[in-house]
Structure formats: C-alpha cells, structure tokens
Simulated scan of single mutants.
Amino acid sequence: MLLSPAAERNQDSLLSVLWDQLEEQPQRELFALELGSGTGQHVVHFAQDLPFVTWQPSDITEEFRTSIRAYIAATKSSCDVIVSINMLHYCSFGTIEGVFQGSGQILRKDGFLMTYGPYAINGIIIPSSNEDLDRTLREKNPEWGLPDVDVLRQLAFDNGMRLERMIEMPESNKCLIFRKM
C-alpha cells in the first residue's frame, strides 16, 4: 500500500467540505466518483465517514477506465458527486474540458463536482509558492499549470453547472464546488 503524506494532511479538511455540501442533500443514498484517486487514501477515508455515499475511485490506467465505464453503465450513467483532488493542474486544457463535459453529462440534477488544488484567479497566481509550482509544471509539460477559476466557471456553465462555492483551504489551495443545474 502506498502512503501519500499530502493526502494524510488534507483528507480531514476535504472531508469537512464534503460534509458541508452533503448535509444539504435531501437524499441520503448518493454515488460519488473520485477522479485521479492516486493511492486511494482519500476515497477510503471518505467512505469510512460518509457511509451513505457509494464511492467509485478512478485513475489513469486502462484497467481502471474499463471498470469505470462498466460501473457507469450499471448505474445508468449518473452520480451525485464527482471529486477531483490535486489533478487539474496536471492536465492539458483538453483533459480539463473533458472533466467538465463528462461531469455535466453524468451528474444528476443538484449533484456537484468538487475540485481541490491551487488555482489562478483572473490570471493572477498567489502566493509565490503557487507561482513557482505553475512555472515548474509548465517546464515539465507546457500543457500543465494552474487553471484559472474564471475559465473553469465558464466550462462549468457551458456544461450545465455553476460555480456555487470557492472555499479557501490550507497551503493556498481551494475547493471549488460546481453544482449541476
């Protein structure tokens, strides 16, 4: 089993945000998809504290994508929650578009996409540690880098969602909640 110190540090804060969002849900049997599950620590932690949510982890390997397609087909291509933690800044814009298009298609009405990580706002990246991260990511792959919240807001709108909340998190990160309209 792999252990991610970053996942250990932020899992309780992320769980708190999920609890805040889910207590407003009128239904208590929910389905959630986590994008880019990595070690799996987050999804296991969330499943233990949110027993009314059925979690589907995912990752980039073909083996997991095949499983995801089968699971989505079995659940009539809909879910209540999609979670993407520390993923978007490691993606090309085309992949980010795919995340929002797919979320818009499979989220049920009033379901939400929760993203977590560092972001630019109106083209501005703060603090300097996030500027450094953005520069390092772009040096590794020119298609990577901190996505701009306003661009994500427009992608969400184009796919039937709206940015409902932006929550400040530790270490200059944010949780963004995009609600399906």
Score class of each variant (00 low, 15 high):
Glu97Arg: 15
Gln56Gly: 05
Leu176Arg: 13
Val151Pro: 01
Thr95Gly: 03
Met1Glu: 11
Gln48Glu: 08
Ile106Thr: 02
Phe93Arg: 11
Gly117Leu: 09
Glu164Phe: 07
Gln25Ser: 13
Phe112Val: 02
Ala120Asp: 01
Ile177Gln: 04
Ile60Pro: 00
Arg65Phe: 03
Lys109Gly: 06
Pro170Lys: 12
Ala6Thr: 13
Phe178Gln: 11
Asn159Gln: 05
Met87Lys: 03
Asp110Gln: 12
Leu152Thr: 01
Val151Glu: 08
Asn122Trp: 07
Glu171Asn: 14
Asp20Pro: 11
Glu139Leu: 11
Glu131Ala: 03
Leu35Asn: 00
Gln11Pro: 09
Arg135Leu: 07
Asp132Ala: 13
Gly145Phe: 03
Trp144Arg: 10
Thr66Lys: 08
Gln105Glu: 12
Gly117Glu: 04
Arg138Ile: 05
Glu131Met: 12
Pro170Met: 06
Gly94Thr: 15
Ala74Tyr: 09
Gly40Ala: 06
Gly123Asp: 02
Glu131Asp: 02
Asp148Lys: 11
Glu139Phe: 09
Arg69Met: 08
Trp144Gln: 04
Met1Ser: 12
Ile68Val: 14
Thr61Trp: 06
Ser37Val: 03
Tyr116Cys: 00
Ile60Gly: 09
Ser58Ile: 00
Gln11Tyr: 02
Leu137Glu: 09
Asn86Phe: 05
Asp59His: 07
Leu33Gly: 00
Ala7Ser: 14
Val99Leu: 13
Ala70Trp: 09
Gly145Met: 05
Glu168Ala: 08
Asp150Glu: 14
Lys140Ser: 14
Arg108Cys: 15
Val44Arg: 11
Cys175Glu: 08
Met181Gln: 10
Leu137Trp: 02
Glu63Leu: 09
Ile125Cys: 03
Leu133Phe: 15
Met169Pro: 10
Thr54His: 05
Val99Asn: 01
Arg69Asp: 10
Ser37Asn: 04
Leu50Ser: 05
Arg138Thr: 14
Ala73His: 07
Ile96Arg: 11
Gln27Ile: 10
Gly40Leu: 12
Glu8Gln: 12
Arg28Asn: 15
Gly40Ile: 09
Leu22Met: 11
Ala32Asn: 01
Cys91Asp: 09
Val81Thr: 02
Pro118Ala: 15
Gly98Phe: 15
Asp80Lys: 08
Gln48Phe: 02
Pro147Met: 14
Glu24His: 07
Gly40Trp: 07
Ser13Phe: 04
Lys109Arg: 07
Gly104Ser: 07
Asp80Pro: 04
Ala6Tyr: 06
Tyr119Ala: 03
Phe46Trp: 07
Asp132Cys: 09
Phe157Ser: 15
His45Gly: 06
Ser16Leu: 14
Asp80Met: 04
Gln25Ile: 04
Arg108Ile: 09
Tyr71Cys: 08
Ala120Glu: 01
Lys180Thr: 07
Arg28Trp: 06
Phe52Ala: 03
Trp55Gln: 06
Thr39Pro: 00
Ile125Glu: 01
Asn10Gly: 12
Asn10Tyr: 06
Glu8Leu: 15
